[in-house]
Nucleic acid binder design. Structure first.
Lengths: 159, 159
DNA sequence: GACTATAGTTAAGCCCGTTTAACTATTAAG
DNA sequence: CTTAATAGTTAAACGGGCTTAACTATAGTC
């Protein structure tokens, strides 16, 4: 059903292997961070998606607004997130990652991707040169996907 | 500090973007699965790593043996995991994924990777042809990494 | 055989992330 | 202006994942 396309099948294998490796590091790192999974996901969402409302995050995380409101408090106290009013609709809050928050996310990403250095270590310079344009192409097209699909973010759950 | 190597930097960008997409699907899928995060991680560990002991899993997940023993019960009741004695050391249990368990993991993987089909959709056949050998090379070298690093799995935590 | 160490299980209790429900504040509709 | 709808917060209560501690069973050691 899924393996007709050798390209997709190779891509899936790569994704699964890399996810599995990164995920382990992520879980371990998370356990030491004194933040809940939803809190870390919130930081990552704000990092990747940009400013959001409480409702946005609730939809994204699949939990209630009340829960989001509560998990945000410690993040704001810690100076990782800024909570201000949305001037266009003062019912909403505008949640923004602070520089400290961005830093935190980047450190977490580095932990998740530490194993990539090992992978780079077993590749020759020639191979890296061959791989680089391929990965850059993937990155470019993945960025394009963002522009296509990321707009209807307020209505993709519990609509 | 990390961005000296353009190859590594491109690889990191790819990893982060793909992780973020897959992770969201994973969290959502997990919420509906009636399994805890540790239980799902257990299934994935058994899928990728092969048969393990309770102690192995505890080290891998970073929780106590008692916790693992308890989270296994429902998995065994559901027919996803088989628990038998290790004949070489009858103190240990041998935990094995059943066919049903493997199925469950594969379904979960498909959910995580659904967005890859969208990515494949915005790539031309020519581009796919160019990317395929690159991804296959990455897969091959990642598999090699497994052989190097996966052996000392019983002592890599709380040693 | 006695002692110690290791693997796993069980039960009690704790912690904390989430839900529910009630409330305030702002916007939209009649 | 009144009514209804939406966004967010707060506090109480629930539930489940994990730890601790006590126990059983097998393996290694003297």
């Amino acid at each position: 059903m899924h393996n007709e396309d050798p390209f997709l099948s190779a891509l899936r294998e790569w994704m699964e292997a890399s996810m599995h490796r990164s995920f382990h590091a992520f879980i371990r790192h998370n356990r030491e961070s004194a933040l809940s999974l939803s809190q870390v996901n919130t930081l990552f969402r704000l990092y990747h998606h940009g400013n959001s409302s409480v409702n946005d995050l609730a939809n994204y995380l699949g939990i209630t607004r009340a829960a989001v409101s509560q998990l945000l408090d410690p993040l704001i106290d810690a100076g990782l997130v800024l909570r201000s009013e949305n001037p266009e609709d003062r019912r909403m809050k505008l949640l923004v990652l602070t520089d400290q928050g961005k830093d935190r996310v980047q450190k977490s990403m580095n932990t998740r991707h530490a194993w990539l250095s090992n992978l780079a270590g077993v590749l020759s310079d020639a191979e890296k040169g061959q791989l680089l344009p391929a990965i850059q192409l993937l990155n470019q097209r993945t960025r394009d996907l963002n522009l296509e699909h990321d707009r209807p973010c307020q209505t993709d759950f519990k609509a």
